[in-house]
């Protein structure tokens, strides 16, 4: 018996994750099944819809498998959202393993109705700006794009002016100076050409990065259930903690590549020292408190989840 599984995702085929994680995963599964599982890869939302619809496309069986950013549907995964809080995760490998374990223990119910293959994070987010950010003072009044509400909140607490803007608009806005900077991990910088548009990149000495986004590699439940047992076993062998960790490592490799481009371009790479980093961590605390209050409004114990998330990260370090 042969099956064809369709994988839909939002980035071009040559981007870090599609080329470095998803396609190799598909090839590996296909080989282990001796060709009985075939994959059709649909990059760049080719089968239609907006990226925010991907999760439902997997849930409803529009396609068999999707790779998506969980933050694209704010409000839908409140308990998993804790990983987006500032200074949570050090890198893709550790963050991904921790995130997978955390979800399985604390928020698996948010993924009811789908079959989870992998859950992962990207590497540490950092600042990319026209003018150098050497101290907490430097960011005051800067127009900075933040990718989520938590990041925008934090930017406002830090004294910057958060500009909410979709990723595709960022290149255009950055190149003309409509915004002064943006927060993305290194991995994303080559595709939106950040290193050409700005000359300053500011990261942190802390073992944790400024912020993290979370991703899901998700399969339709029926597509999984309908597989014969031996093929299910092959999918199972290529799911879970180690695949999540592997996806995170691909993110880290992408980060290294992005960093190298900026270094080769002769850009100014700032590493804030311990004392400065602590100032930023302190300044981010109101954002975390606000998130606790938000969660309390929904009857969720945010503090407990936060502690669980920190413990999950610590366990991997």
């Amino acid at each position: 018996q042969e099956v064809t599984l369709r994988i839909h995702q939002f980035l071009p085929a040559q981007a870090t994750m599609p080329a470095g994680a998803i396609e190799p995963w598909a090839n590996k599964v296909s080989e282990e099944s001796e060709g009985r599982i075939k994959f059709e890869l649909y990059p760049a939302m080719q089968l239609g819809g907006a990226p925010a619809e991907l999760y439902d496309q997997a849930k409803d069986g529009v396609v068999d498998i999707v790779w998506t950013v969980l933050g694209y549907t704010p409000g839908r995964f409140p308990k998993s959202e804790v990983f987006e809080l500032p200074f949570m995760s050090p890198n893709g490998e550790i963050g991904s393993a921790a995130f997978y374990n955390y979800v399985m223990a604390n928020s698996a119910d948010e993924f009811a109705g789908v079959h989870v293959i992998a859950l992962h994070t990207h590497g540490p987010g950092l600042f990319h700006s026209k003018d150098p950010i050497n101290t907490l003072e430097d960011i005051k009044g800067m127009k900075v794009r933040g990718g989520s509400r938590i990041i925008s909140d934090m930017l406002a607490n830090l004294g910057a002016e958060p500009i909410g803007m979709p990723v595709p608009q960022t290149t255009e806005a950055l190149s003309k100076g409509v915004i002064d900077g943006t927060t993305v991990p290194w991995e994303v910088t080559p595709s939106i050409r950040v290193a050409e548009l700005v000359t300053n990149h500011t990261g942190f000495t802390s073992q944790y990065g400024l912020y993290t986004q979370t991703f899901g590699f998700i399969m339709n439940q029926d597509s999984y259930n309908n597989l014969p047992d031996d093929l299910k076993a092959i999918i199972d062998a290529n799911s879970g903690l180690e695949v999540s960790r592997q996806f995170g490592m691909v993110m880290d490799e992408g980060d290294a590549r992005g960093l190298k481009i900026a270094v080769d371009a002769g850009n100014n790479i700032v590493q804030l020292d311990e004392a400065q980093t602590q100032l930023w961590i302190d300044a981010a605390q109101p954002t975390i408190d606000k998130w606790f209050a938000d969660m309390e409004g929904q009857g969720i114990d945010g503090k407990a989840l936060y502690d669980a998330a920190r413990a999950a990260v610590a366990a991997e370090m």
């Binding site: 239609g48 819809g49 907006a50 619809e53 439902d56 496309q57 409803d60 069986g61 529009v62 396609v63």
Partner: peptide, 8 residues
């Protein structure tokens, strides 16, 4: 799947 996609 067709019907599901057109929800969004």
């Amino acid at each position: 799947p067709v019907a599901a996609q057109f929800k969004n």
